[in-house]
Design a protein around this nucleic acid. Structure first.
Lengths: 330, 330
DNA sequence: ACAAGGAAGTAACGCGCGTTATTAAAGCGC
DNA sequence: GCGCTTTAATAACGCGCGTTACTTCCTTGT
């Protein structure tokens, strides 16, 4: 920077002023031009670390995920990344791999790097408890919530997702709709079932509990559940299946095809999660709901930016819609 | 740090010495203990940015990928991450999204952050040309190579992968093995075919070109190719299919099942890429080869660390084996 | 007794930059 | 010509730390 100043025949301070567009500093166009020219000629590049030190503003946000591998974390990263870079902020990413020791180490490093905020994302919607050092810095939870309800969090709107899926099947003329659910105790299963039942009631149909079976989040479990539903007498048999996730839809597909039934003519299927590799390559392609991971990532950075700037949050608990992706299974 | 020094009754220099285990500095245990105690009591945490500035060693490596989403990039990140954190180095990750402007912007930021090395990873094995600013810093290519052959690169060993897959099928007793290949012009397709033919020749079988069909990297293309192979007269019909990737194996599965043939009893299948969501959930589960993305990521960081330390590289072009994952389709 | 040498610790500079207070020059009204 | 304001630019300090050169005190050997 001193070289640039010398080259342009000004002081280092002046260079700093044009570099930062310092408001209140009166720099004639001619001087500014000379400086920019010198920067260009010398190939000068400001040192981000030194700027951070001097300005007491690191520009870093931390992002802790359970696993980096896996489509979900990657989407959160993508969303957070794009939003952060656009704002000239940067993401220090770490994976805890579910190991508290690694998580603590990651947290330590982040604090040493003086992150201005922390994003904590989980693979599936659930409750978490953070180490208390995390309180030293603004923190936002993504796809999870803390039991005490103290930290702001961003969650998928499971209920409206369940409603939207069911509604889609109702619109296609189905009235007996089976729900092959996840583990019934987890928030996703609870919310989606609520949405499912609300959609039915709104259509004047009383939800039939015998049409709701757990599929235990596996293709095999869903296959078993689907077999049970499809082997009922014609009058009791559902003409559509809403599956808790896409892997389960895969199992359901097998059960349906095995019986010589066609998708979607005989049985329609809606999945959940939009795992591209499954949903887009099943035959026929699977209509499913997407978990809004990318949107959750960008929203997380937004909230962090607000918190880091000392602004209050309008909402402590944000839910984001799960959009329906139409393919060919309905 | 000054607070810690005052609290422990020593100078800041001494604190720095114990913090960095400065060799040659004689610190009595008693003094060291007092200092560590003060650190603990005051909750002192060194400022990573300031250390980097003073030591003139940022500790950052840059990682540029085409897409963050998608299983491949995520694995590279995982591998690089774990290796880097273990070495107290950190990864500044950016996605180019295939956009040269974004790529240039990312590169700029990385250089401003004074990365000590750059990892450039692509989604599929191919040639690339980097912007020349990338030459300002040690660079290693991952899953790609530069046409000039100047930059060190890490590539999957496609040939040995093709050999291993074919060998597995030969060992299971198959002698007529169909190859439903990727776009025949890309390095992956060429290498794998070479390995396939070498394995056949080693088993005393002359490769039959009519058994090699392009599947164009899609499930539909592979379905078509598989149909063509399976509809041949029994004597010409392959009893095993080696598919260019797992999505194509999916298409092959459909063709096989449609004909009432069983996997693996009537037709065995081997895929490539190990896309967990497909391979592990197809029924039966798919035996496939894994692209060693994670290993490539860790190796990349290793090479970068060596380069950043000024050590020469033993090999300019590293290939890494593609391990076989046995499941139930052979 | 004294020199030599090691142990323990420190003052002071510099890393690359942002920022504040201050100065010097230029413009303006009378 | 003199005061006053605006414009243009700078010297100097501090951010939090690593490091070098230097000082002081204590042993040890003869």
């Amino acid at each position: 920077m001193s070289d640039v100043a010398r080259h342009a025949g000004v002081s280092r301070t002046t260079v700093s002023f044009v570099l930062n567009d310092k408001p209140g500093a009166a720099i004639p166009d001619e001087t500014r031009r000379r400086i920019l020219e010198a920067i260009d000629e010398l190939g000068y590049r400001p040192n981000a670390g030194a700027r951070a030190l001097a300005a007491n503003r690191s520009g870093w946000f931390g992002l802790i995920t359970e696993i980096v591998t896996g489509p979900f974390a990657a989407e959160v990263i993508t969303g957070a990344q794009s939003r952060a870079w656009g704002d000239r902020r940067f993401l220090l990413i770490a994976a805890s791999e579910g190991d508290p020791a690694q998580e603590a180490a990651a947290l330590d490093q982040m604090l040493e790097h003086r992150v201005e905020g922390l994003l904590y994302a989980t693979t599936w919607h659930r409750a978490v408890t953070l180490p208390k050092v995390a309180r030293e810095v603004p923190t936002v939870l993504v796809n999870c919530y803390d039991a005490e309800g103290e930290l702001p969090c961003i969650l998928p709107d499971e209920e409206s997702g369940g409603h939207r899926a069911t509604r889609r099947l109702l619109d296609a003329g189905h009235t007996r709709i089976g729900l092959i659910n996840l583990d019934p105790a987890i928030p996703a299963a609870i919310g989606r079932r609520e949405g499912y039942e609300r959609a039915l009631r709104e259509a004047g149909i009383t939800p039939d509990p015998s049409l709701v079976l757990p599929g235990w989040a596996t293709a095999d479990g869903a296959y078993t559940a689907a077999c049970e539903l499809l082997d009922r007498p014609a009058a009791d048999r559902p003409t559509a299946l809403f599956c808790g996730n896409d892997r389960m839809a895969m199992g359901a597909y097998d059960a349906i095809k095995e019986r010589g039934l066609r998708i979607p003519h005989d049985v329609a299927v809606v999945g959940f999660d939009n795992q591209e590799l499954i949903a887009a390559y099943l035959r026929p392609k699977l209509t499913t709901l997407a978990l809004p991971f990318e949107a959750m990532g960008t929203k997380g950075v937004d909230m962090l930016a607000a918190l880091a700037a000392g602004q209050p949050l309008d909402t402590h608990r944000v839910t984001i819609d799960c959009p329906l992706l139409e393919r060919s299974s309905v």
